[in-house]
Write a protein that binds this DNA or RNA. Structure first.
Lengths: 196, 196, 196, 196
DNA sequence: CGCTAACCGAGACGGTACGTCCCGTCTTTAC
DNA sequence: GTAAAGACGGGACGTACCGTCTCGGTTAGCG
């Protein structure tokens, strides 16, 4: 049910179904951002979406899969980056973007819920990990490219370096009271990858 | 007023209180580690501790403050490090220790719960952030020392570097399916702080 | 608005509701009769009725309104009397019936609970008093008729006489260890209304 | 424990004990009259009496026996009647007194609680019944005397007549919204025992 | 078009945990 | 050595949601 990437076999579905899904997902995201995971209730989402509770359960098996699915819809708003400039420049642009997103967005508001949910629900965990791996890849690629071109030191392990950069940003979001700000991106990159 | 000599009003407390607190906190930690934050139940803790539910509510106002308090008791098991060796050696020892703790321990099992709880409860958040800052400090210190002694490059920002190292470890724990292993500590340090 | 012909908005109700009400009221009466008002427990009623506690609270706001409502269902079992015979004969039949009911029946088992409940809950008190007035009326009527026909002394106040007869029966039930038995009905009537 | 009529074997008791008993009984009666049986709690009585909960349990085995004992202290305030006048006059004086007491007094406020409590607790029931029998006796006696002197008809059963008179008063208190008033005493007696 | 099947909202249902209150017992400390 | 203070295990309260399940009512799209 409700497989993230599955295309329907039937060429056309009842338009009411799609309409319900949209309304509910939107309401779920709003709710999650507003009250957080702990106070997130299906009944609130249903009320907010102007929909019966059963309509939600008709499309998602439980609370967590609704949340997981809602996250996917956020995925589309990514892909911010272009391919111009040196690896260093492109890396900085990516890091700034990540910092911005993590600093404040619906997505950011939902991260703790996602982390906790992933701990308890296998399906959600899988989605979470795959999603992160996917989002991490461009960063790794651009670092690897920079190592190849000599923009970054040869001893740099692209994967570990990407982990250090992302980790710093997420660590600040999740473990401290002061989130990482985009302006610090340059100094972070200098520290981790040595200055140009 | 009552006592002539200005003696403290309550010099000692009922020993049962302390005993109950210990038993309950222990049970709470066990429960948290086992079933996680989402399935954490006061009633289960009470049963596990062999205690009435009301005894728990007599000492903690609600679920979250119990959890917050339980975490504080984990604070004692830190202080792992010694002061011998070069900054590089001591840094690696610290990183390995953190990696070990994050890879598997009651504390590790509770991190997602802590992160999620901190998002909704102000008191828990404060505790969480103060606790992390405290635990982070030795790492920052040893990096700063290494920069001063020339063991690490002069351009390194100790705080950002510490963030990168810790962030990498926690990121792997929270956002990927493969936790960071202590064996990778050396390579991580090389990447972030350049090799010796 | 929606329906063109101005049809009632909700002609029928979910049949499950009525079914639940029946089952629960029955269980509540049984429970009341068995364990009494003091030990009457919503949770026991739920268990006895094979119903979730929330189903009870969905229909009744609290314990007392459930009890009050349960009593109303006893209202139906009255109407025992016919209209044949002299006033004296009919009076005796009524008194015997009351004595029988008060001596032993679910209703009788619940009287103390009802009296006590009525003392604290306005709604229950109203019901209790209205119910009693209703049940008292036939007795008053037949006495008044007897006074008119000369079967009873002219100085008899029908209402006070009815009170005396009923009072004697209830007093025995509530304030003594020996309930009034139907066989004594004749002598009671003779005493209060003088012999034929 | 705490048998209603038992005299202590020891000639002298610790005066604190007696003092505690008095304070607690007084507080219990006040509490009962104010909040009723349903909201009557030991903890409230303890607070009102300025006494520890355990002090109450040291003297009474449970809530009901405290209440029962409290009632006994009301017994002393009875004995209202004198022995002058004809049986009819003395009867009326007794009935008026009962009506007054039942219409409004701490005792009256506690009757429903007592009735309900007696239904569930054997000890309380015994006390209740014995207490009532005792209080009923003077009424029976004076009626019997009146029958003997010819003041009342020869066919009158003194016990049933007393039951009718008392029953009428209590019935009005417990089962109707209009309590019996002392002014109606004369007419009630006329109806039940025929006019002089 | 008109029918019928699917989908819908509404919300009742059996549950479970919440956090509160009070029970009656038991322990500790102060007077 | 008694009493106050109050901690304790227990259990019912009434509330909030869970995820499941009927209900009629309303579309949609096929025939």
């Amino acid at each position: 049910m409700n497989s993230p990437g599955g295309t329907p076999l039937k060429s056309t579905v009842d338009p009411r179904i799609e309409r319900s899904r949209q309304v509910i997902l939107r309401a779920a995201l709003d709710e999650l951002g507003e009250v957080g995971y702990g106070a997130f209730t299906i009944e609130s989402v249903a009320a907010r979406a102007g929909v019966g509770k059963s309509t939600i359960y008709r499309h998602w098996s439980d609370k967590l899969s609704l949340i997981a699915n809602a996250f996917q819809t956020l995925h589309e708003e990514q892909v911010p980056d272009i391919v111009t400039g040196s690896p260093r420049e492109r890396l900085e642009r990516i890091v700034r973007h990540v910092a911005d997103v993590v600093a404040g967005s619906i997505f950011s508001a939902c991260i703790p819920a996602l982390i906790d949910g992933a701990e308890r629900d296998l399906g959600l965990r899988d989605f979470h990990h795959r999603f992160q791996a996917h989002a991490r890849q461009p960063l790794i690629d651009v670092i690897a490219e920079g190592v190849a071109t000599g923009d970054f030191p040869h001893y740099v392990d692209a994967e570990l370096a990407a982990l250090g950069l992302l980790g710093a940003i997420f660590f600040r979001r999740l473990m401290t009271s002061v989130p990482f700000e985009a302006d610090q991106a340059s100094r972070l990159i200098d520290t981790v990858l040595s200055p140009p």
